[in-house]
């Protein structure tokens, strides 16, 4: 663990009677992707807005790159990049005008700013759309110009608020490639998402947020392990041997065996992976032919369901952010 890029203690923010963020503690180490996972209204956006100095916390403390988000707000602003959930560029302006505007505001000369804007548009595959108004961009292009706008001065830390919400799979993959590219160059990325596979694919560590609180934190492997080692799926050559297989597996694994709708298949939630190897041996010793034998890690969906008691994709209340 290197130094911390983000550290928060007891961060709180309420809007009227809604406790959008109800005491969030985070410790994000520098480098890599940190995922904040939660359903709509969990408090992800509010948290990111406090860290990016757009909202003042009601209580608690937050340090970003060692600077307090309230007392040293300008120091934070000059070191982080923010890509909000909604278009964070001016839709009336063209792509190159948007980037040039930001470059000028960040202190580039007119000439260097134009060069920087052109380089960014090239790198993000937007060179041909440079002189077109952003409102005429497709969803994927708009996300890319949003992210490019956060990189006019390469930030040490970049906040991406739901960067792939509403994107088609191809554009989503492009955004993922950009995130991986930024991390490869040493940046720290904090991204919020409501997609479990996105957190699984990108994030080194994940904080699961629900109702304004962190309810679990760890690598995706650790989170999965917290709900059990995974599940075993077995498929037999001969369905009539299923009863026999069920008896053998139950004895070897010491957990309840579930019989699937498929008459030749069985599955079990595993608590001790050690026993799995032994159970294979027991099956073949009993003369039971197996065509498929798979040990799967639990999905983050299962993790979320176990942790919160409700599925991740459901929307229990309106977005408090």
């Amino acid at each position: 663990m290197g130094k911390l890029a983000i550290e928060t203690r007891g961060l709180k923010k309420s809007f009227g009677t809604t406790h959008a963020v109800a005491g969030v503690d985070l410790a994000v180490s520098a480098g890599g992707v940190y995922g904040v996972l939660g359903p709509n209204g969990a408090g992800k956006t509010t948290t990111i807005r406090m860290l990016a100095t757009l909202l003042r916390p009601d209580a608690g403390e937050a340090q970003v790159l060692g600077y307090d988000v309230v007392r040293d707000a300008q120091a934070v602003r000059s070191r982080v990049g923010l890509t909000g959930q909604f278009a964070s560029v001016d839709e009336d302006l063209t792509g190159v005008e948007n980037l040039l505007l930001l470059a000028r505001l960040l202190g580039y000369s007119r000439r260097r700013g134009r060069e920087r804007a052109t380089d960014l548009l090239d790198a993000f595959g937007l060179a041909k759309a440079a002189d077109r108004q952003v409102k005429k961009y497709s969803g994927g292009m708009r996300r890319r110009i949003d992210i490019a706008a956060s990189l006019v001065v390469t930030p040490e830390l970049i906040f991406l608020d739901e960067p792939t919400t509403g994107l088609d799979p191809r554009s989503r993959n492009q955004v993922w490639e950009i995130v991986r590219g930024m991390v490869a160059e040493g940046a720290t990325v904090l991204l919020t998402t409501q997609y479990l596979d996105e957190a699984d694919q990108l994030a080194d560590r994940i904080a699961v947020i629900d109702h304004g609180k962190v309810i679990a934190e760890g690598s995706s492997g650790q989170l999965k392990a917290s709900v059990g080692a995974g599940s075993l799926h077995v498929r037999l050559r001969a369905p009539e041997q299923r009863a026999e297989a069920e008896r053998v597996l139950a004895a070897a694994l010491d957990v309840p065996i579930e019989l699937s709708a498929d008459p030749a298949a069985l599955s079990a939630r595993i608590s001790d992976p050690e026993r799995v190897a032994r159970s294979v041996a027991e099956l073949s010793r009993g003369g039971i032919d197996v065509t498929e034998f798979a040990l799967g890690q639990p999905s983050l969906d299962e993790v979320f369901l176990t942790l919160t008691g409700h599925a991740a994709e459901e929307t229990p209340e309106e977005d408090a952010a």
Partner: peptide, 21 residues
């Protein structure tokens, strides 16, 4: 507009990120 957009290239991305002006 979509046709006009080329995929993101890794090398170009690296060079803009490294230009740490």
């Amino acid at each position: 507009a979509e046709q006009a957009s080329a995929p993101v290239t890794e090398d170009a991305l690296r060079s803009v990120l490294l230009a740490g002006e």
